[in-house]
Nucleic acid binder design. Sequence first.
DNA 1: TGAAATGTTGGGGCG
DNA 2: ACGCCCCAACATTTC
Length: 495
Amino acid sequence: MRLPGAACQGGAPFAGGEVGLGVALPAEERVRALHWFRSDLRLRDNVALAEAAARGERLVCAFVLDDRLLGESGAPARIRFLLDCLGRLDADLRRRGQRLVVRHGDPCREIPRLLEQARAGLLTFDRDYAPFARTRDATISRAAEKQGVEVLDCKDRVIFEGSELRTQQGTPYRVFTPFKNAWWRRYREEQPGPIGPIRLPPPVGGLAAGSLPDAAALGVAGDATEIPVGGEEAARRRLRSFLAGPVARYREDRDLPALDGTSRLSPYLRLGAISARTCVDAALELAQAEPKAEPGVRSWVEELVWRDFYHAVLSDNPHVLRRNFRPEFDRVRWNEDEAGFAAWCEGRTGFPIVDAGMRQLARTGWMHNRVRMIVASFLTKDLLVDWRRGERFFYAKLVDGDPASNNGGWQWAASTGTDAQPWFRIFNPVTQGERFDPKGVYVRRFVPELAKVSARFVHKPWESPAPPADYPAPILDHASRRLEALRRFEVVRSG
DNA sequence: TGAAATGTTGGGGCG
DNA sequence: ACGCCCCAACATTTC
């Protein structure tokens, strides 16, 4: 267990805390605190909330619905998931004598106003690494400090930040493997387990609670995506069931999209319904008790290291959201293939593994990671469409859509990123399908037109003696597009 | 967290 | 018995 103050940069350390959490400061040192919930929608193992609780004589728990973000993302499934998580967070707070105070509007206006209304002396929130958020948070912190409010901006959504892991030269890591090695080294030193239970101070009286809008009010009621149940309890259940079985086979099963071999925790991690710390700690504890599970646990934890890596990359290189990480790739010419892009979006390219993935995304707001790589390779190397268009589409559809990981994944697949797939490595959608979905169970699940095609032809139905009449013929020839991609990317060598 | 082309090796058929 | 060819299997190189 770790004291919460240790995680907060720029804030006073946890002054009262020789013991664990929940040990309040002496009354005279306590203030009215406002915890601003963002992507940390949980009451357990929440660093910034723990700070507010430990230092607060009274506490306001607030959430601001920012229409700019809601509207801009155009992501109805994720908004519905967010509303579900917020409703459950509010219910959890009410069970503990608290409540979620909801405001609608620009946080730069709403947070200072709430601080004033609550006569708060402390503002806490979890640190966000996206450029837009950093600008916003800096503005709000300045305003709060001008009001005489202390601000604690706490590391919470990642285990280690980029600034905590530097190369020998003191520069940010650009390659995953050394980053990962440094991450493990630091993890062994620090052992950053989850923090203990948080005892919440009573609410500040006289503040309008506001109310959560329903899906209709946010214009997402018509969305039919089959999203998971939100909230902290669902997240913890999911972690428990994953650790109780699938994780032991994770290293072998994670690449097989027909199986439920992955944790499916990404939507919960995205909104902080569960913390990465809790996940890693529980997994490593299992590996300790159950050595057979060790390889699976290790490879699963490494996926969370990728998550830290991409947050670090974004934090140190904010330009990646708009531009190629590696500028030499600016010379690559992309296609304006509207018809091809539409076929890709709608899952009717005629390549079963690609179409199954895109239809899984449309139906469930989630896609198996192996298939994400395949469809991303198809868009960027077969259709030769700019990766940013794929990134935007994913961001609009994914329930787990996160700027850092989404951008990292796309720049990896497009070969334009840090430690990316070398540009001459081009996935063959048929080979990938045959290798990772040998019996076609996954593709048939999402592409019912293929139900009657034998396993032999299920990834290349055009070669079947009786191709299904209702499934499209392939929209392109992979072999020739591959050669075209190699020609297009050639310009990164010299110019 | 590739795939395809090219090179090498070795066994077997066969004149 | 021997050389030659074919080709699968595997390894290496190239993109």
